[in-house]
Design a protein around this nucleic acid. Structure first.
Lengths: 143, 143
DNA sequence: AAATAAGATGCAACAATGTTGCAACAATAC
DNA sequence: GTATTGTTGCAACATTGTTGCATCTTATTT
């Protein structure tokens, strides 16, 4: 578990530039505590009085993915979401309030991935697992 | 495991209409043996000499999802994919040739879902799990 | 502190995916 | 065959994501 400043320092150490937008995008993704879509990032940057172009956000996300700082996931709608890569985790997506919460499983699927290699000769590199359902507060509202 | 004709019969029995496009979309999704994106469905329908509008395909997919005939999945790119709902399964997505193969796991994640309910009070209704990696033939090519 | 080089940015234009309203049409029931 | 209601195509639009290029910034060098 790292913090935003450490990551920002590493980017610098790796010889990459620290631009205003780059720094604030990293902080924004950190503070969000959940994956963000590009349009959400734009809105949040605007909240810091940082006007950035759509294009820049997309390009910066690609850069942050190449640096293995940010990862890409899907949450059931037609958008792409991005989040800071920390501990390996999955997501609970509430169908009611659309909230997203990270969850760490005991079972990391290594057994399944090993079986897949034996049976199918398919070498798993990564996986994505999202759970869809209802969070506690939405469950109560429906009861 | 059902076949296309059974599904088509059930739609009829449920009081829904059997239109040319509806019937061919079901057959197309069946024969594909893998999830299809809307634009791919359009192309395949054209192969049967069936000209359909984008709009119609989107609306028909929504209908088939409401009927629980078709399910929606993500495969790592920015498109939405649809497939006939049969046995519960997951997908192996090859990063090399982009091929997609269905796989049935021994572990159906019920244990994990039960633990999630206990720990997080989050009631899981469904999940989506995709594995990304390299298929046998792409592995050999890189070796 | 100014000059430089390379990377980052904004803008315009475009491409693809997906949605909505509405008029015309087709599948079924009668 | 006619009526009813679901289905379809079309036009227009909204959103997401990409590309080329001129301009500006960051960080280094002098």
């Amino acid at each position: 578990m790292t913090d935003a400043d450490t990551i920002i320092g590493n980017i610098r150490a790796d010889g990459h530039r620290l631009t205003r937008i780059r720094v604030f995008m990293i902080r924004t993704l950190f503070e969000a505590q959940r994956p963000l879509a590009p349009s959400e990032i734009l809105t949040r940057l605007a909240g810091f009085d940082i006007r950035a172009d759509r294009t820049t956000v997309y390009r910066e996300l690609r850069f942050l993915m190449e640096q293995n700082i940010v990862g890409h996931i899907k949450l059931g709608d037609h958008r792409n979401y991005y989040e800071i890569l920390t501990e390996h985790h999955h997501h609970l997506v509430c169908k009611g309030c659309k909230n997203v919460k990270a969850v760490v499983l005991d079972n990391h699927l290594e057994d399944e991935e090993r079986k897949i290699y034996k049976k199918e000769k398919f070498k798993v590199i990564s996986h994505s697992l999202e759970f869809y359902g209802l969070c506690d507060s939405c469950l109560r509202k429906r009861a």
